[in-house]
Computed example of a mutant assay.
Amino acid sequence: MLFPQIRLRSTFAQTELQIEKPIQEIQQPNAEMTMEQPKAELTMERIPSRLTIDQTQAREDMDLKSVGRRIEEAAQLGYQNWLAGLARVAQDGNEMMRIENGGGAIVRQAKRNSEGPPKEFNIGWIPSHFSVKIDYEPGSVDIQWQVRRPVVDVEVKKPIHQYIPGFTQVNLANYNSINIDFENLRHVGTGGYEQKI
């Protein structure tokens, strides 16, 4: 016995894509930079320290005197001796004027002129204390500076950008279809009529 059959065959529609990729180019030129560093200015003013040592008195205490000092002392000593001699001669003259009064003026003058002054001795330091004079003036340093800032000049370069957009084209490669087929299909009518479809 043959059963009727309906056969369906269908195909799906197929699309076709044509794609053009986008193109992008970016170039970044280097920036230009110039830098200049001016020199700093530095000024220094220095006053040197001063140390003075005067050992004149210490050298005189050790009898190491300069010629000028020796001449000055000799002149002073001569003047004092002259004044002392003048006073002594005047005193002796006054005593001799009164010789008639007695009293032994000649004996006293002879004794005075023959004997020197009494000798004195004491502890001494050569050179004497604080005979070296020291004077110190400290120095100073004045420093002035002026800082110079760097001069920086930067020229920025914009990027070079090229862009070609892409696109997509959609086409229908195959259309959809349906095919219907009948097998063993019959129509039976009245009166024994039969027809194959």
Rank of each mutant, 00 (worst) to 15 (best):
M1K: 15
M1F: 13
M1I: 07
L2G: 12
F3N: 15
F3W: 10
F3P: 06
P4T: 05
P4F: 03
Q5N: 12
I6T: 13
R7D: 10
L8A: 15
S10Y: 03
T11C: 09
T11G: 14
A13H: 04
T15C: 11
I19P: 00
E20G: 10
K21I: 03
P22R: 08
Q24M: 11
E25D: 06
P29K: 04
P29Q: 03
A31T: 02
A31D: 08
E32P: 00
M35F: 04
E36A: 13
K39A: 15
K39F: 11
E41W: 09
L42A: 11
L42G: 09
L42F: 00
T43G: 08
M44S: 10
M44R: 15
M44T: 07
M44C: 13
S49R: 01
L51D: 01
I53H: 02
Q55V: 10
Q55Y: 07
M62A: 08
D63S: 14
K65L: 15
E73Q: 14
Y79V: 03
W82D: 04
A84T: 01
R88I: 02
D92N: 09
D92T: 03
N94W: 12
M96H: 05
M96Q: 09
M97N: 11
R98Y: 05
G104L: 08
G104M: 09
G104V: 02
G104T: 07
R108Y: 15
K111D: 10
S114K: 09
E115Q: 11
K119W: 06
F121L: 13
F121W: 10
G124P: 00
G124E: 02
W125P: 02
S128G: 14
S128M: 13
H129Q: 10
H129A: 15
S131Y: 03
V132W: 01
V132K: 06
Y136G: 05
G139H: 00
G139L: 07
V141N: 06
D142N: 14
D142S: 14
Q144R: 15
R149G: 10
D153A: 15
V154L: 13
V156A: 12
V156M: 06
I164Y: 03
F167R: 15
T168K: 12
L172S: 06
L172I: 12
N174W: 04
S177Y: 06
N179W: 05
N179F: 12
D181C: 11
N184W: 01
N184E: 01
L185S: 11
V188A: 13
G189A: 05
G191M: 05
G191T: 07
G191N: 14
G192C: 03
E194W: 07
K196F: 11
